[in-house]
């Protein structure tokens, strides 16, 4: 990263395509402030009516898990098949369950 103070910071952009759906990460862009980030995101990521709401988040504010830790991090879920409905045997003939 450069130290040039005139470089605009990086923002991650999330777009909600329709009311009721979740905001989805679509990419990133540089902008001087949040307002400009939203306006730039409008021009870059919604030129074809892809969205009706935009979130922008400073890229520096995002913490992420490390791919190398994935095995350890997600290990607790590996042996708990009883968390899924298909784990259970239902008696023959029972309905609506």
């Amino acid at each position: 990263m450069s130290d040039n103070p005139n470089n605009w910071p990086l923002w991650e952009v999330f777009i909600q395509s329709k009311r009721g759906l979740d905001h989805k990460h679509v990419g990133s862009l540089h902008a001087a402030d949040p307002q400009m980030a939203i306006e730039n995101a409008r021009d870059v990521y919604t030129r074809r009516q892809e969205g009706q709401s935009i979130w922008v988040v400073p890229a520096a504010a995002i913490s992420a898990s490390q791919p190398d830790d994935a095995a350890m991090l997600f290990d607790p879920a590996d042996d708990k098949t009883y968390r899924h409905p298909t784990f259970y045997t239902m008696p023959e003939g029972a309905k609506y369950i």
């Binding site: 470089n7 990133s28 862009l29 021009d43 870059v44």
Partner: peptide, 22 residues
């Protein structure tokens, strides 16, 4: 305008590899 957008998508992708935009 699309071409400008395409340039930006790609600059962003390059940036994820640790290069600076500048």
């Amino acid at each position: 305008q699309d071409e400008a957008g395409h340039g930006l998508y790609l600059y962003s992708a390059a940036e994820t590899l640790g290069t600076s935009r500048e």
